[in-house]
Write a protein that binds this DNA or RNA. Structure first.
Lengths: 191, 191, 191, 191
DNA sequence: TCATAACCGAGACGGTACGTCGCGTCTTACA
DNA sequence: TGTAAGACGCGACGTACCGTCTCGGTTATGA
């Protein structure tokens, strides 16, 4: 057992994940994590330098698990709405974690960068596919950069989440898709 | 001296402002604030309900001090760029403070709303003016909601700040104005 | 309340005293003390550097409270037995405290000396009186040093307590008085 | 190598001995012992039930190394003084260890008895011999119990050590032998 | 000769207590 | 009455030590 037992890693990360969702970052206690993971605090602190680092690790490892978010609905607007709705759900699930970390991120650029890297990643395949289908259907004049579009969508969702808070309802989806994403993507394709 | 001495308000707010910039929200202590302001903690807690509320107040009061951000540049694009650039600067100056607060904002919608109200306050007059001038110049088919536009701009800036970090350079301004703000505002005016 | 509240001192010292008697030094916890004294650990650590120092303080303050131990029984043997029995009881009450401290005493000569000073003190008035009465009754040829006699008695009691442990029964009293104290005091008087 | 390697015993006991002298019982750590002995904690706990037991064992083994303490000086007083002086030296060498153990001894009578058995072991032969010689020389009326006498001597030495601290000088030896041991042993022989 | 078994070092583990720190409340003395 | 000073209860933090355990590696018999 000399090397740190990966089984304990998992138990601790799981417990942390659960507690983050249940009580939030601030009210989550290291003792609670230890108790729920049937671990001791020493075991936790042997792996992570502190509570923020542990939570960052949780987020990093869990962020790639997103279910695929694209569904072919037959129209560009429908596809965009689907993907935007799915993004809302993902953010709504994780915003407690990320928000709770933000103050740490400011003072620890290392962690911030690591976290950012794990927050982007994939999904873009789906976005690219739906944009391609829109071109085929004649809804778009040309292909556009899926990453650039996704970034705008992400910006809208996080902004809403941070400044207005949950919930992210259907009206917000409609407003965002019709008011921003469709105009923007249309303009890009026309350029 | 019966009413709360406004001189103490200022000293406390100043001390808080300084410390926020120096050590960040988490590492800033109420005792530190009291000591630097040569005040007692009682004096602080007689005015604000707690550390987050105090900091929100700091931000609210400082946000109104923004230099006017609209300059008539003669073109819609120029005006939008100017206002966007000014927003970037404001966020760049304050992002440490706001980021440090975000975890509180999520769990305290009251504060979040208050903060948001103070963050847009005066800006909208300028935005509305520049949009009006664009209509007069024939660059826009109709007036559009300045708040809605400002929200999109804000989303882009904060997203960039949180996910990519500083700095916010001129390329980002151009990309945002040409790629998002102009298409969006044109679409809205055409609707 | 600015200076350390003496009322809290008392509550903490009392709680410590009780717990020492109930569970002993090793099993006594600072949290237990705090809880029983309805105090916080911070309040305790603001006054004492640590658990050993607190307990030494308890002993120092409580050690002088010994009830007078001499009763005139009409014979030297009876008086010696009474005083020896009373010493046994005192030691039996305090041995947990003193024993529990001994390892600390070794590494902290300062504390050790302080403790020693508080462990001797008075009582000798009673011992002197009974020895005087014995001279008057003709049981002793001359007066003897009460301190020297008390030291021998103390040695016997502590030795028994440390090496054999409790209880200190009547057989031990008889053996000590008849086998050591009486021969010794007789020899001293005859010299 | 099936039986527990005696070489490891020695290394561990030596390390324990050194550390006891250097930092005292409380601040001595099992991990420290293991590291200094280049052993693992498992190896230690395979041999001893715990830290106190290990230390008791250290003392027990070192106590038997005492140089023989009886020397025939030709007189009872001289013999008693010699043996008492030798006891003083032994205690002075070991008092740090024994003092450090006393709290354990109180709560663990088993260990206390074991320790006590090892502490008197061989000595009594010498004591018995010197008492016998005194009878032969006509200095004593009858044989007396050597264990009982040794217990009194031990009590005096430990009491002095605990309550007055080192050093144990020649004045103390004279006072003890002439003031206590001789009167006591004479009284016992006359009974 | 090789396998079986016991030892060994290393060090992770659960648990418990420690002593520290920060928040928000409260009390006192002064102006 | 408002203020400066600072003690207080509370509770989380991160550390240290104990005694147990699991892991490979090595040595020493006995099949």
């Amino acid at each position: 057992m000399a090397p740190l037992d990966p089984e304990r890693d998992r138990a601790i990360l799981d417990a942390t994940m659960e507690l983050l969702s249940e009580v939030g970052y601030d009210r989550m206690t290291v003792d609670q994590i230890a108790k729920r993971a049937k671990a001791s605090k020493a075991t936790i602190y042997r792996r992570w330098a502190g509570k923020p680092e542990l939570v960052v690790d949780v987020i990093c490892r869990r962020f790639d698990m997103d279910a695929p978010l694209g569904q072919d609905t037959g129209s560009l607007r429908g596809d965009l709405a689907a993907i935007f709705r799915s993004l809302c759900e993902a953010v709504e699930r994780k915003h407690t974690l990320v928000i709770g970390l933000s103050s740490t991120l400011v003072s620890n650029q290392e962690l911030a960068r690591t976290l950012r890297e794990h927050m982007q990643a994939k999904d873009l395949g789906d976005v690219k596919a739906l944009l391609g289908q829109a071109v085929e259907r004649g809804e778009l004049a040309a292909a556009v950069d899926p990453g650039r579009l996704f970034a705008v969508a992400e910006a809208l969702v996080w902004h809403r989440m941070i400044f207005n808070g949950p919930p992210l309802d259907e009206a917000f989806v409609a407003e965002s898709v019709d008011g921003v994403l469709l105009p923007v993507v249309t303009a890009w394709a026309a350029a």
